[in-house]
Design a protein around this nucleic acid. Sequence first.
DNA 1: GCATTTTTTGACGCCCCGTCAATAATTGAC
DNA 2: GTCAATTATTGACGGGGCGTCAAAAAATGC
Lengths: 244, 244
Amino acid sequence: MVEITRKQREIQQRTQDILRVAKPILLSEGFQALTMDRVAASMQYAKGTIYNHFPNKEEIVLALAIEAMRLRHKLFDKAAAGQRSARIRLMTIGVACEFYTQSCPEEFQVEQWMRNSNIWGKSSPDRQAVIRECEAGCMQIVASLVRESLAQGDLPAIEHLSPEEMVFGLWAITFGSQILTASSPSLHSIGIFDPIRSTRIHCCRLLNGFGWQPLHSIDEYLGTVEQISAEFYPQFKQIQREHR
Amino acid sequence: MVEITRKQREIQQRTQDILRVAKPILLSEGFQALTMDRVAASMQYAKGTIYNHFPNKEEIVLALAIEAMRLRHKLFDKAAAGQRSARIRLMTIGVACEFYTQSCPEEFQVEQWMRNSNIWGKSSPDRQAVIRECEAGCMQIVASLVRESLAQGDLPAIEHLSPEEMVFGLWAITFGSQILTASSPSLHSIGIFDPIRSTRIHCCRLLNGFGWQPLHSIDEYLGTVEQISAEFYPQFKQIQREHR
DNA sequence: GCATTTTTTGACGCCCCGTCAATAATTGAC
DNA sequence: GTCAATTATTGACGGGGCGTCAAAAAATGC
């Protein structure tokens, strides 16, 4: 059943190779520059062979997006594991998001591309389903932390606001901040010089606002986030500098 | 100085005509389907003539984005005018955002397209500058409401959080929610059935969290938002037509 | 070793982009 | 009203990407 012939393995390997070739082209020169001819030429295969693996270039982008979201999912999983309080583990997920966006900017970029309706619309339902599962999976990790805290009494039930809606709020502010940071050229001119710090503060206020115990002062929160960051992603600062 | 020859007027008019032709193509069939040949054929002009107006199709998209953002700016302006408290006027801007996204989905869509680096990167610095000004202008409207409230004492200065950062938070959560609503297929499956209501609640909690007087209970807030909505946008369709 | 199946190939048809020399229209001087 | 100069329009063209498919090559199995 898990029998895989050599041939099949070779084919799977080549699918990977195609992605490895396509990714730098996509990320450094954009979607336009990613052409099937070029991918084929880079690998010394004929174009038709590439088409045996991906029916169009949009599918390549979606395949890369799936890899990106799997990475995100893995980071979320690691962050949500462990013995600490749900609130701390939730903060760790927040740090994971920062880490992801900052030190895997390519994956983050691909996720944005995937949201582009041109690409989404042309890709196969199968891959779309994988993406959806992955996204839902990430949300479920957060949601289960919320439910855990509710069950343990750290987090009071809030009238008018379901646990899922709390997740939605956290997600929206994190995601919204990151998108704006990445694509709003006017941010700096309006006086936002450190969007990451701003985002952290808003998340802290949101969590405190939910009444999620133990409440943190901003200074505590920022300090704890720094600790988590240093602990989980010791290489982060370095990478951060690399990417300026 | 404001002398405009008939010829110039005709040319300006045709630029508009091109946008009127391009918009439905773009919105109903996507960026792929928007080809210069097709635009030209639709208007019974030669392709070269279209190129006299726009050096490439990305510029057409950006020109449409400028129209969209001007509309957004106008809505913000109207919302921020009037004699009511700054907090109410801010809420009115929130309603304006909802209105914009809901009843001008095409404009909202074009704004997203514009953020796509493929399009942004290929367009002219002039149009990019207009977009930036427009975006900064929208933010300034919000920022000045914040500053007004600070000056009047309705809104306490918050340690660690500048007025601009408050704007950033509001912007991020509103924008983030809307993007997610528009492009996250898993929202429904995770249990978010009324994202607009959720977003309103989060905004209310954010404003209350800032200590922005007078504080609203969720019920009050939702009620007030409904009132504003009914007052400013009594007839959804009519306003939509105005800007066609 | 040979027939059958699978895989690879790359030329092909189609379409789009953006250009530009040729053509048409407009202008303004006389 | 005429005509030369200026300006605007045209559409054929070169370059290139997409996706296909019949033919060639390779692998398989008997």
